[in-house]
């Protein structure tokens, strides 16, 4: 049992438990902090897979930006009280949903297991990546060569998101000069 496998076990256990906590925690704040835990462990898993760039981005974008945003909104809305919304829905509804979810999990796991024997056909083996100068270099190679157009398109998406957020956050009758 090498240390990589041990690390995998630890990270994946934290990820699964953390995500369960996200769903089951009563107060949104606890959920948010469980989510941070999950993000961190996912970052570890990425690193284990050799995707160092993604691992770094995971911490920067998710933990650093998105989670801050979440916590900020929770603060803003005063959602720090425990809610009982989990218990509100009917047993039948929960049963059917859980059944569906388990079925889905079953199907997905079967699909995952079927990919066990796949032999990779791509050129970017570990040796090749090392030869090229590491993960970051090889990714930039692909990103700014093959995916440069998509990369530019994403900027439009972000621009759109900014405009949408501003429009949403604006007070309703600020245009007509009224105060609400």
């Amino acid at each position: 049992m090498d240390w990589i496998f041990v690390a995998f076990i630890v990270f994946s256990t934290i990820a699964i438990l953390g995500s369960l906590m996200v769903v089951l925690q009563k107060t949104p704040v606890s959920s948010a902090f469980s989510l941070v835990l999950v993000f961190f462990s996912f970052s570890g898993l990425y690193a284990l897979l050799g995707a160092h760039f993604i691992a770094a981005l995971q911490i920067l974008v998710y933990t650093g930006a998105i989670m801050v945003l979440f916590v900020f909104v929770i603060m803003l809305l005063g959602q720090d009280q425990p809610t009982s919304d989990l218990k509100d829905s009917s047993l039948l509804f929960k049963g059917i949903t859980l059944l569906g979810a388990i079925g889905l999990l079953n199907v997905l796991l079967q699909a995952a297991l079927s990919s066990k024997d796949i032999v990779g056909k791509g050129v970017y083996t570990e040796e090749k990546i090392n030869e090229m100068g590491g993960n970051l270099k090889s990714i930039s190679e692909v990103l700014f060569k093959d995916y440069v157009f998509h990369f530019e398109l994403v900027s439009f998406l972000i621009l759109g998101a900014i405009v949408a957020t501003v429009a949403l956050a604006k007070r309703k009758n600020s245009l007509s000069g009224g105060v609400s």
């Binding site: 369960l20 769903v23 949104p28 959920s31 948010a32 929770i74 989990l86 509100d88 949903t97 979810a101």
Partner: peptide
């Protein structure tokens, strides 16, 4: 799947 269950079960939009 855990995330999906959360989306379906939880009512708090956050």
């Amino acid at each position: 799947v855990i995330g999906l269950i959360g989306v379906i079960f939880r009512k708090n939009l956050l």
